[in-house]
Amino acid sequence: MTSTTSGDTGLAVPSWELAAREFAAWRAGDPAALDRLVRVLTPVLWHVVRAYGLDRESAEDVVQTTWLALVRNVESVRDPRAVMRWATTTARREAWRISRAGRREDVAEPETLDTALPPVDGPDSAVLAADTARMLWRHFAALPERCRRLLRVIAFDDRPDYATLSTELGVPVGSIGPTRGRCLDKLRGRLAADPDWSGRRD
């Protein structure tokens, strides 16, 4: 997944494009393409849904429901290039609805997240990734909730539907781009002031 995630990263093929390809192949009669489509998009949906503060069980429910909705309403996705946006928008809408109905936890709790990290005796690269993640988390957690949600959504879905996002974040459509920029600047500023961060990479 890491190598196929986002056009934003400049790496490999963006997820939306992979999804478009597999969706088109599935619609053209290749049943194995559905398998690949699910494996490409499920991690994206997971992170997008978790950005709304749903607990893990509710998030899994939303991911399952989203896939069922896609298969049941497959005719409504006329352009394969829109399939990822269709799925992430459906998932976000449902996650947003459930989070407002009160079935949620605050996943932005560092203590909770610390326990989810891989054990320190894992492979070196995993330890390194976990250390970096922890370091970044300290600063990320200090951002306003709106920034945390927006950046997590965009980190996995770099072409989100702005209309629904604007409702959910309470900012006008035209402000999403600038808000994203300000959120990134805040994060960058905090990281620049952390000698541990600048010492560990680049």
Binding site: A116, A133, F140, A155, F156
Partner: peptide, 8 residues
């Protein structure tokens, strides 16, 4: 940010 969430 992407990698952080994948790890956390």
């Amino acid at each position: 940010v992407h990698d952080m969430w994948e790890a956390l």
